[in-house]
C-alpha cells in the first residue's frame, strides 16, 4: 500500500514538469533500471534498485570476500582431485610420472590397496623431514652425520656418485630409456621404495619363498619376490621388451649400509 502511494506521487510529480523533461527523466530512469545490477556486478558498487527506492525491496548488500581459510581449503581440495586424476589415469613410465606422484595426496594412496607398500607424497629432496614424525621420508631415523636408519636397520649414508645413497637409489624411481641394458624402475615414490627395500631385506633374511641372500666380496646381495609387481624393467632392455612388470627387489648392502637397491627380473 505504501509503495503504491509513492508510485502515484511520482506520477503526479512527472505531470507537473514539462513533457520533454519528463521524457528525459523517464529515459534516465529506464537507463538506471537496466544498468544498476550490471554496474553493481562489474564495479562492485552497491547502487540501490528502483524497487528498493520505492520501498518494494531491500537494497542488496555487497558480497564479502570468503574467509581466507575456506579459500585455502578449497585449493587443497582441488589439488587432491588433480592428484587423483593424474595417478589414476597415468600409465606413463617416464620422468614426469615422478613429479605427478610427488603431487599426489595421502588420500589417494589409501585408495590403492593393491599396492604392496603404502605411498604418499615424494619430496624432490632426497631427505625431507616428516614434520609429524620427525623422520626422513616418514620412516628413516636420523643418526647424525647425514646417515639415516630404516626400521629394519639398513643405513643410508653419504656415498655414490650422487653424493648420498638416498640420491643414488632415487635413480630407480624413473626410467632411463636410453641407458644401455636393464634399468629396474620402482613404481612408487621414495617412501614406498624405502618401505619395499626394508621388506625385501627382511624377507631375504627370513629366507622367505622366492628370496635369496648371497655374499660377494664384502657386499651382500639380498633378493625377495613380492606377490604383486613393484615396478617395471626400463633401460634399453626394458624398452625392447615393452617394459615388463617386475616383482623382485634386489638390495646390495655393505655392512649395514645400502649401496643400491632396485627392482629386477
Amino acid at each position: 500500500m505504501v509503495s503504491r502511494k509513492r508510485t502515484d506521487t511520482a506520477i503526479n510529480t512527472l505531470r507537473m514538469i514539462p513533457t520533454k523533461w519528463a521524457i528525459v527523466l523517464v529515459a534516465l530512469l529506464i537507463g538506471y533500471v537496466l544498468l544498476q545490477p550490471r554496474l553493481n556486478q562489474w564495479l562492485g558498487w552497491n547502487l540501490p534498485s528502483v524497487a528498493s527506492l520505492v520501498g518494494d525491496e531491500k537494497p542488496t548488500t555487497k558480497k564479502e570476500p570468503k574467509p581466507t581459510k575456506e579459500v585455502v581449503s578449497k585449493e587443497k581440495a582441488s589439488e587432491k582431485v588433480t592428484g587423483n586424476v593424474t595417478e589414476n589415469t597415468s600409465d606413463k613410465k617416464t620422468s614426469d610420472k615422478k613429479s605427478e606422484i610427488a603431487q599426489a595426496s595421502t588420500t589417494k594412496t589409501a585408495n590403492r590397496t593393491n599396492d604392496p607398500v603404502p605411498k604418499d607424497s615424494a619430496p624432490k629432496d632426497s631427505r625431507p623431514k616428516d614434520a609429524a614424525e620427525d623422520k626422513i621420508h616418514g620412516i628413516l631415523k636420523d643418526l647424525g652425520r647425514n646417515r639415516f636408519e630404516s626400521p629394519e636397520g639398513l643405513v643410508y649414508g653419504p656415498g655414490s656418485e650422487e653424493g648420498h645413497r638416498l640420491k643414488h637409489i632415487e635413480r630407480h624411481l624413473e626410467d632411463q630409456p636410453s641407458r644401455p641394458g636393464p634399468h629396474g624402475v620402482f613404481d612408487g615414490d621414495m617412501k614406498a621404495f624405502l618401505v619395499a627395500i626394508d621388506r625385501a631385506f627382511a624377507m631375504a633374511n627370513k629366507g622367505a619363498k622366492g628370496s635369496s641372500k648371497k655374499e660377494d666380496d664384502g657386499a651382500v646381495v639380498y633378493e625377495a619376490t613380492f606377490e604383486k609387481p613393484i615396478g617395471f624393467l626400463g633401460g634399453t632392455d626394458g624398452k625392447r621388451r615393452k617394459n615388463p612388470a617386475l616383482k623382485k627387489m634386489r638390495v646390495v648392502v655393505r655392512g649395514k649400509s645400502v649401496i643400491t637397491a632396485f627392482p629386477v627380473q
Binding site: 641394458g181 636393464p182 657386499a219 634386489r250 643400491t260 632396485f262
Partner: peptide, 13 residues
Amino acid sequence: IYVESCPVCGDGL
C-alpha cells in the same frame, strides 16, 4: 662408455 652390464648386481654398467 662401458664394458658390459654388471655381472654382480645385474643393473649397473
